[in-house]
Each structure stands twice: as C-alpha cells, then as structure tokens.
Design a binder for these strands. Sequence first.
DNA 1: GCGCGCGGTAACAGAACGGTTATAAAGCGC
DNA 2: GCGCTTTATAACCGTTCTGTTACCGCGCGC
Lengths: 224, 224
Amino acid sequence: MKILIADDDRDLLGLIAFALTQAGYLVVRASDGPAAIRAFEEESPDLVVLDINMPGASGFQVCEAIRVKSRVPVMMLTVRGEEEDLVRALELGADDYLNKPFSPRTLLARIKALLRRAGVESTAPLAVGQVTLDVDEHTVRIGDGAPVRLTKLELRLLQMLLANAGRTVHSDRLLVQVWGHRNSGDRQLLKQLVHRLRQKIEADPANPVLLQTAAGSGYKLIVE
Amino acid sequence: MKILIADDDRDLLGLIAFALTQAGYLVVRASDGPAAIRAFEEESPDLVVLDINMPGASGFQVCEAIRVKSRVPVMMLTVRGEEEDLVRALELGADDYLNKPFSPRTLLARIKALLRRAGVESTAPLAVGQVTLDVDEHTVRIGDGAPVRLTKLELRLLQMLLANAGRTVHSDRLLVQVWGHRNSGDRQLLKQLVHRLRQKIEADPANPVLLQTAAGSGYKLIVE
DNA sequence: GCGCGCGGTAACAGAACGGTTATAAAGCGC
DNA sequence: GCGCTTTATAACCGTTCTGTTACCGCGCGC
C-alpha cells in the first residue's frame, strides 16, 4: 500500500513518514505542489495526504489535478479555523480532512478508515461466498469455475460490490468510486458496465443471481 | 439520515434546520440540554449537533450522556477562542467542532465529511413499532410479513411519517419534504401517494390502520 | 333538497428506469 | 500504420413510476 504525502514542513513530513512506515505503508514524499503532482503521476499511490498551504501549487490545485484523472482517496491537512479552505477542499473532492496539530495515531486511524472505505485495503485475493477476486491478476472465479479476466472498470465495480457484499450500493456511489465523477447523466455507463460484468460472472446473465438490481437505488452482490 | 440539532438560539436553529432539510436530511430539534437528551433517546439520530452553551444542561453534559450509550457522531458548536471548551469537548468524545459564526454551507460540508468518516452512509433498517423501513433496499416490512418494495416517493413519505411516528404531520410539510415545493394545489399528489402507499402497507387499504388521516391537517402513522 | 369542500378511488399518458443491442471512439500492443 | 480490446454514446423496448384528470361519496351549512 503506497501513500503519497505532500507538506512543505520537512519536520512534519519526516514524522508522518516515520509513523506510516512503521505501520507498514510505503511512503512517497513531496515538499511542494508541483513535486506532489509529479510524484502522483510517477508513483500512482493508493492514497494521498495533502497540506493545503504549500509553495508552488496549493493543496487545492494538487487535489484538483489529481481528481481530473483519478478517484484515489485524498486527505487534506488544514489549519484550525480556516473554515473556507476546508469547505473548498471538500468540494474539490477531498475525502477527509485533519486539523493541525494532530497525533500520528489519529492520522493513522483516519488513513485506515479511508482505505477501508475506498475498498483498496487488501490487494490479496478477496473471497466472499462464491466470488473469489484476484485484484493483481484481474480475474474472478465463481465457485470452482475457471478464472475469468476482467477489465479495469469491471474489476473496480466488482471490488466495490464485494467490499459491500450483501448490501445495496447506490448508483451514485458506484459512479464516484468507479469513474471518479458523479454526473448523474452517466447512468448509462453504469448500466453498460453492469451488463458486461453480468455476462462474465452470471451463469444466466438474463436472470442474475449474484449481481442483483435494487430498483430505484443501485445494485448489490448476493452472497450466502 | 436523521440529525439532531440542539441550540438555544431559535433563529440559528431554524436556519440550520432549513439548510439540512433542503439537503435531504431529516431534522430533529431541541432547544435545551434536557430536551436534547430526551430527543436523542426517542429519535436515535444518526448524527448530533450540539451547542456548548445551552440552558438546562450544557453541551458537555449532553455529549457525556450520549457517549454513555452510543458512539453516534457528535459535532460541537463552539465560540471562537474558547480553547479549553474545545479541548474538553473533544476529550468527552465529540468527533468534530465548528466555530461560530459559520455558514450553512460549511456546516453541511462538515456534516457530510463526518458521516462519511463514521461510515454511517449505509443506514441500518429503521424500525418503529410494526413498521421496519430499510432505506438502502427501498423496502418496508409490516410486522413479520414479507418485505415490500417502495418507490422513491413512497419511501420519502414513509420516512417522514416514521420520523414523526404517532404525531400528525401537516400536508404542507409533507409536500415540502417529499417534493420540495409547497404549491397548495398539489394536494392531489399527496392524496395519490398516500393511496398508493396504503395499498402496499395496509392489510385492508380501504380501512387504514397504520396510515391514518387527520382530517383537515394531514396524516399520521400509528404505532403502539 | 342543493352546492361546496374534502378525502378516496380509478384510469390514463408521459416520463423515468433498467435491460439490451448496435455502433463509434479511444487505447494499446505490434 | 493495423487489429484487437476496452470504453463511451446512442437508440430501442418493456416495465414501472408519477402527474393529471375525472368521478364518487360524505359531511356541512344553507
């Protein structure tokens, strides 16, 4: 699990990096905006921690640049009291924020929660009920059938449904998690993706058993 | 999603309630400490917003009372500069705080982030008396009957009635909460929706037991 | 009686929704 | 470039949902 941290305060950067490394994460550092954007593109981390106040490009700009091409979880570091900054960050697509000063323990807890929510916590083969998902290989196996190859989007969709197995996941949330945007007009994309995924994982795609529709809200994966 | 707001400033209370209602949340109000604790127990909200300075029992006491029996997310409203209040609130288990004065937009962004962080996004089935409402699945169960699918509007209506179970909800309020407008000519919409909902949840739709008419004002849900 | 307001019911049409198919555009290895 | 896979866009169809119109029955004041 790779985490990118961007902050111009070298001491703080070192402290955070130490804490995260201890916790078993791989840490990439950047100490200004442009470096952060470059590092993001080169390293494609699983999570990004951004300070708002940075030389070069502010955390806002970095967040915006990241959001254009990715839905990776972003955590913002803010100064207490700067409400407007905070709101702007959240509206730009940041997933969580943390007021300075904070304890490394708090940061770690938040990062874990964020990763869990994004469903990227474990890269190992993920098995729930009949469905066994191998994220590295981009394959699923249903029961003891042959592994089936999935595309990037199919994988992400299935990952989300698997992370919430048995519960309904709303279309809007799926749109955000899979594509990173929420234009409600893009329901067609989801329709298509679900259709294609059903062709691959359902014994009878016309009568889905695993990937069921929750009319009016979204989809859910049935496991027993 | 139900939110309890406790503040002794009626104007502020109204403003917040309006903003949150517009954003699609169900709002429960309290204007002093004891009322807040009572409301918390009766309504079991998904999130609580507490002013620190309140007559009866301070926000601290309310927060403490809530924390004894629940881990629901709590947001404190503080006056800027009162650092020790803030620290005390966080130690008592508050999850976030907001300095007065704040904009409704700020509050909304923070509440969203807090809900996300708490992972409350998927609401557990909401049960009052005979009626069990599962918002995610868009279904109700009456007693131990089979789950019945509801449409979006039916769900919203039932949600509103359930949130005010036992009390009459005025037609105008239902119109605003369900459709977002108040053209009094639109009573017919409500009539229809009530009719359709009764077909689904009443054993004998012609003689409603659960969803009763309050002649001249509105409707109410009977629970015992 | 009559007219009137109110709530309940029925019926229908347009909109919205989900599934499916077809086709275009983008990405990628060669 | 070429061919293949993946992704996006559009169109069609059947079903469900929703808004509208109309009508019925009841209570009430006149």
